[in-house]
């Protein structure tokens, strides 16, 4: 992925803490986002993702810690931060009877140097809905309008919370392309998601937040490499194999036998060791599959320790990938 943080960070969050009453929602979160980076915040529901970005947007006042956007405090310098930061909020609506055109015109009038909303609307497939009232839009159209409103001020940073929720697969892919174009134009993107494919496809780096803390912060590839068992291989051996012998190979996580089909989870090293063993024994591996772990696996490994309820989720996920 291009353009990692090279210059001074445009978003700095350090030691951010926020509690609602007795409940601490964000507990000492720190990260920095470089200009032009697509930075993902990934985490289970209720992990504190939205609260974290709301502090970046200046919608919430942190209990403690420091938040800076382009060196400005989003609360104290709210006026200046809103000029350079565009937001798409998770749950917000517009006036039921405002039309798409009116909303785009109104919002672009708030900014010093707005983008031309027409090409933006066209890029988001809203051109034939410009006269439609907000209440008459489909969920996906509303979502695309909010993305347009986040970009209409020509921001240096956009914060997108649950970007593609409610979009169909085609619109989702289009939106991902748009985000990549936006970044190519030098805009920094802070992306909140619980959608792995989206994070893997778009993000340069990802902070995995769990229970208000950062559980991991790395590139998608780095996170996948941290999965307990990054590779899953499965095959039907031409002759019986001793599971104990397989389990003794380096890096093996688990060995399973599903009606004659052997499934081994482990590392790259495991894959090589299994192949060497098969060659030495003169056993051929029918229907051989080797599947790399996905961000899903890494995510579940990172967040499962303190959430045992997700155990089942992980098993289905790895079974599905294998």
């Amino acid at each position: 992925m291009p353009s990692q943080a090279s210059s001074a960070p445009i978003i700095e969050v350090s030691g951010l803490t926020k509690a609602y009453g007795e409940r601490t929602v964000v507990d000492g979160v720190s990260f920095e986002v470089g200009e032009g980076e697509i930075f993902g915040i990934l985490g289970p529901n209720g992990a504190g993702k939205t609260t974290t970005v709301e502090c970046v947007e200046g919608l919430r006042v942190p209990d403690s810690g420091r938040v800076r956007v382009a060196g400005l405090d989003p609360v104290a310098d709210h006026d200046r931060v809103t000029e350079l930061l565009g937001s798409q909020l998770q749950e917000s609506e517009l006036q039921a009877k405002i039309t798409v055109r009116e909303a785009l015109e109104l919002y672009s009038s708030f900014y010093r140097t707005p983008a031309d909303w027409r090409p933006l609307a066209e890029r988001l497939g809203l051109t034939d809905r410009l006269g439609a009232r907000f209440a008459k839009l489909s969920g996906g159209q509303k979502q695309r309008l909010f993305i347009a409103l986040a970009l209409v001020g020509n921001p240096r940073v956009v914060v997108l919370d649950e970007l593609t929720t409610g979009l169909d697969p085609r619109a989702r892919r289009d939106t991902w392309e748009l985000i990549e174009e936006v970044r190519a134009g030098g805009v920094t993107v802070l992306l909140v998601t619980h959608f792995m494919e989206e994070a893997q496809r778009l993000c340069d780096r990802i902070a995995v937040i769990d229970k208000g803390r950062i559980a991991a912060l790395d590139s998608p590839e780095g996170l996948i490499g941290r999965a307990a068992n990054p590779s899953v291989m499965s095959f039907v051996p031409s002759a019986p194999l001793d599971p104990a012998e397989l389990a003794a190979l380096p890096g093996v996580g688990s060995v399973g036998d599903k009606r004659g089909r052997i499934e081994i989870t482990g590392t790259d090293e495991t894959v090589n060791a299994v192949i060497t063993l098969l060659v030495r024994r003169g056993i051929t591996a029918g229907q051989l599959h080797v599947v790399d772990a996905t961000l899903d696996d890494a995510f579940l490994d990172l967040t499962e320790e303190r959430t045992p309820a997700d155990e089942d989720g992980r098993e289905t996920a790895s079974a599905a990938t294998a």
């Binding site: 809103t82 006036q95 708030f110 900014y111 409103l149």
Partner: peptide
């Protein structure tokens, strides 16, 4: 309605 539907909130992320 403006409060409950997040319309006020959306506006507070803009220079308005």
């Amino acid at each position: 309605t403006y409060r409950e539907r997040g319309i006020l909130r959306r506006l507070s992320t803009t220079p308005a």
